[in-house]
């Protein structure tokens, strides 16, 4: 049996979703605009998309690029961020570089990257990589900087070398912060994935969406928005579970869940 509080916590997000769909339905019926299908029409279009083999292949290709871009970015960014956080020299070298890249919308770099690398997978994956890297580097950096010096000294007294301290003390100590960065990175990966496909119109979930838009199939457009949104929510919830499990040692108990986990 769930406690009433736990039950409320489970039901609240579902109610929020249903409420949103209801508002959509009513608004769409009231506006009677061709380019604004009702929620029910949009939901009806979902099985058509997911049943279509080509659409499915496209969506899976998108997800694959996203996974590779995200994975490579995380593997690259965590060590870099940690090193920057613990070494003034490394930070002094990379900080100005990142300051320049930071405010640039990564999608704005796409035309140039397309020029060099074409419109294929590499370009899109690279853009996702860039989008994910910055928040992960930033949070790893902040996390590493905040590691209590006495903790490192304790490790040094036990005989840990500088590299061992980085891997076995700085990394776990900064993990909560790093994972916060990864969570932001994951959402950004989804956003840059769609944006990249919008610019390099060749394949992918974004391509389906914008093709439908060009052809005036508005129920498909909205259905795609729901699919992409649902993917985002699921990925985020999944990640949140993994995260909560990894850093249980640091977490105060949340009263309000920050996701649908």
């Amino acid at each position: 049996m769930m406690s009433p509080a736990a039950l409320t916590r489970r039901i609240a997000p579902v109610l929020a979703c249903v409420g949103l769909l209801a508002v959509w339905q009513v608004a769409s019926l009231a506006l009677k605009n061709d380019s604004f299908p009702t929620a029910i029409e949009a939901i009806r279009a979902i099985p058509d998309i997911l049943g279509d083999k080509e659409a499915l292949i496209n969506i899976l290709a998108s997800l694959r690029r996203m996974a590779i871009g995200f994975g490579v970015a995380v593997i690259f960014s965590i060590p870099l961020g940690l090193l920057m956080g613990r070494s003034r020299a490394v930070a002094a070298f990379f900080n100005p570089l990142l300051m320049i890249i930071y405010p640039v919308p990564k999608a704005a770099l796409m035309p140039i990257i397309m020029l060099w690398l074409g419109v294929g997978d590499i370009t899109k994956t690279l853009v996702i990589f860039l989008g994910v890297s910055l928040p992960v580097i930033y949070h790893s950096f902040e996390g590493a900087k905040a590691v209590e010096e006495k903790m490192l000294w304790s490790g040094a007294a036990m005989g840990l070398s500088p590299l061992q301290r980085l891997v076995r003390i700085v990394l776990p100590a900064a993990l909560p912060e790093i994972l916060t960065g990864c969570r932001t990175g994951l959402v950004l990966a989804l956003i840059t994935m769609i944006t990249s496909e919008m610019i390099a119109r060749q394949s992918g979930a974004g391509n389906i969406l914008f093709n439908a838009l060009d052809m005036g199939q508005y129920d498909t457009v909205f259905a795609m928005i729901i699919i992409v949104g649902a993917m985002g929510i699921c990925l985020d919830a999944l990640f949140e579970r993994v995260r909560a499990r990894l850093v249980r040692w640091s977490e105060p108990q949340f009263d309000i869940p920050l996701s649908f986990s």
Partner: peptide
């Protein structure tokens, strides 16, 4: 400050 390893 104790400086324990909080993940252990």
């Amino acid at each position: 400050e104790f400086a324990l390893f909080p993940w252990k």
